[in-house]
Design a protein around this nucleic acid. Structure first.
Lengths: 71, 71
DNA sequence: AGGCAATGTAAAGCAGGCTTGACTAACGGG
DNA sequence: CCCGTTAGTCAAGCCTGCTTTACATTGCCT
């Protein structure tokens, strides 16, 4: 499960701690999700998508889905 | 976290066991998700959405999002 | 050099997702 | 009436998401 969290966060110049506060989770959770240690729960995935104003599919990509190679 | 799993499943005339097989989880997991006992993991939510050809947001609705009252 | 912010990482523990196995109840078909 | 299918539920156990605390590293600023 890849995700664009690090990019979206960097676009807004937020630290991992900033993002964690906005999501109501710990900084370590944000770091673990960004570095692919584990996947967020579905409710947290919803909060993340809402925070960035995107659909879940635009933030996270299932490994079973094929990726578009270019933007 | 509400979901339309039961409706989507009924539209296809699948039993909980059928759906569980297609998703690669147990029948009890499907039942628990349908009856709101717990939320699926994000990877499972992706598999569910893909199986029905819908976006995750079209299957699950975050409690923080306001629902449309009619279809 | 020393201090601070940001990131990465680890250990221990709690909460929640998911499994298997089993039991119950409702239903329709022989 | 019995049988098979479906659905709901419970219990025990395992694995994963998430927490807190803590430490190491890098880079920037005085």
């Amino acid at each position: 499960m890849n995700n664009r969290l690090k990019i979206l966060r960097a676009e807004r110049s937020w630290s991992q701690g900033d993002l964690a506060d906005r999501l109501g989770v710990s900084r370590q959770s944000v770091n673990a999700i960004e570095t692919g240690k584990y996947d967020p729960s579905l409710p947290l995935a919803f909060r993340i998508a809402e925070l960035f104003g995107l659909a879940i599919e635009q933030v996270f990509s299932s490994p079973t889905q094929h990726q578009s190679k270019a933007i």
